[in-house]
Amino acid sequence: MSFYTSLSGLKGAQTDMSVISNNIANAGSIGFKRSAAQFGDIFASSPSQSTKTIAGQGQRLNGITQQFTQGSYETSEKTLDMAIVGEGFFVVKGAPPTNAVTYSRNGAFTPLEDGTVVDTTGSTLQLLPVDTDGNVTDASLGGAYDLVLPKVSSTNPDADLVNVSVGIDGLVSATFADGSTEKLGKIAMASFPATEGLRPVGDAHWQSTGESGAPVIDSPGSGAMGAVRSGALERSNVDITEELVLLIAAQRNFQANAKAIEGASTLTQTVINMN
């Protein structure tokens, strides 16, 4: 039995090292959120047995949870590079035919030739409609639409686009050569009842699940939503020093369990030799 007990610890330490290694590998990834492996002990006995005479039977992996703490910020010279200060996720929509909606902390957005603003995966940033005063008129996923930068003013076809600004409240405004401005909408953001239940799909993107609950859509600075900082990017929340310490501990656990298996093997061999 000691073989299997130590084997469960060996597998657990290996999983722990894999999780930590992934954290370290993504220390420079924009918007990455570190994960941590959580373990529990295995204990089994029959109703007629006394638990005072039963040893534990090892450990098991209870889950790998993501840590959605705030990452540090890196300044950028691009207006469409955005970082979320606080809670929430950018809402982005994939290309047809799936049009899959995902939620991201990766605020590296770039305009395409047609003016569509996309992230590093090619998904389009979503906006919420606003009135003339900049107030959101439809805070729902169904009311969101793609952010497309206009090339000319809607009221003056001869006035080209000269500047785009993003406020901390997520209001995207376009300024044209004739001095006029247009409010394009507010950046759509999402929050969840149980953020840890989100399903990661890579590139600091997540999908909602039954465990995370349905998304609550709103603009930056509203409710639980954080503000948006233009000209900045959120780095990963990985602390290299902490991860290296955890890696050393995981290595020691692996070595100790391997030593326990070696000890059990020696005892078994001794018993065999007695016969």
Rank of each mutant, 00 (worst) to 15 (best):
I248A: 13
F3G: 12
E196Y: 09
F68L: 12
R252P: 03
R105M: 10
A188R: 02
R60M: 12
G122D: 05
D81T: 07
F192V: 11
I240H: 06
T51N: 14
S104C: 12
I64R: 01
I261A: 04
A232P: 01
A214T: 10
T175F: 03
Q66C: 13
P150F: 08
G223F: 08
M17A: 15
G223T: 04
R34T: 05
I20W: 01
K151M: 04
G143Y: 02
E234H: 03
I24A: 05
V152Y: 03
S35W: 00
L128F: 03
N275W: 01
S208T: 01
V162I: 15
A100E: 14
L141Q: 03
N237L: 04
G142M: 14
Y103N: 06
D218A: 12
D119A: 13
G28K: 15
M189D: 00
A260H: 06
S191C: 11
Q49F: 14
T121W: 09
A44G: 14
S50K: 01
S48P: 08
F176T: 03
N135Y: 12
R252E: 13
S208P: 13
A27S: 11
I248V: 06
D133T: 11
A13N: 10
S45W: 15
A108V: 04
L141S: 08
A256N: 03
I272C: 01
G56T: 00
M274F: 03
I24H: 03
E74H: 11
G40I: 04
G122V: 15
V101P: 02
T102P: 06
L125D: 00
N163I: 07
K52M: 10
M1C: 09
I64A: 08
L128Q: 00
T195M: 10
T241H: 07
A139N: 05
N135C: 10
E77D: 13
G9C: 09
V172H: 01
T270H: 12
S21V: 07
E211F: 12
F3I: 13
F32H: 10
Q67I: 11
P200G: 14
G12Y: 00
G28D: 13
M17E: 15
D16V: 12
I272G: 00
T132F: 15
F68Y: 02
N273D: 09
V19T: 01
D146W: 04
R34G: 05
S180A: 12
V130F: 02
R199A: 15
E211I: 10
N237A: 08
R60F: 03
A249N: 10
Q38M: 14
A224D: 15
D178H: 09
T124W: 00
P157K: 06
V152E: 07
V92F: 04
S140I: 05
E262G: 07
D114I: 15
N106L: 08
I187G: 01
S104T: 14
F109E: 02
T79K: 07
A177N: 01
S212K: 02
G142L: 10
V85N: 15
N237S: 08
D138V: 14
N156H: 05
F176C: 14
G88E: 05
A25H: 05
G31E: 08
A55T: 10
R252G: 13
E243V: 11
N273W: 01
P47S: 02
G88Y: 00
D119P: 02
G122Q: 04
P129I: 08
P96K: 13
A232C: 06
N99S: 14
E211Q: 07
G179T: 10
A108W: 01
D239L: 05
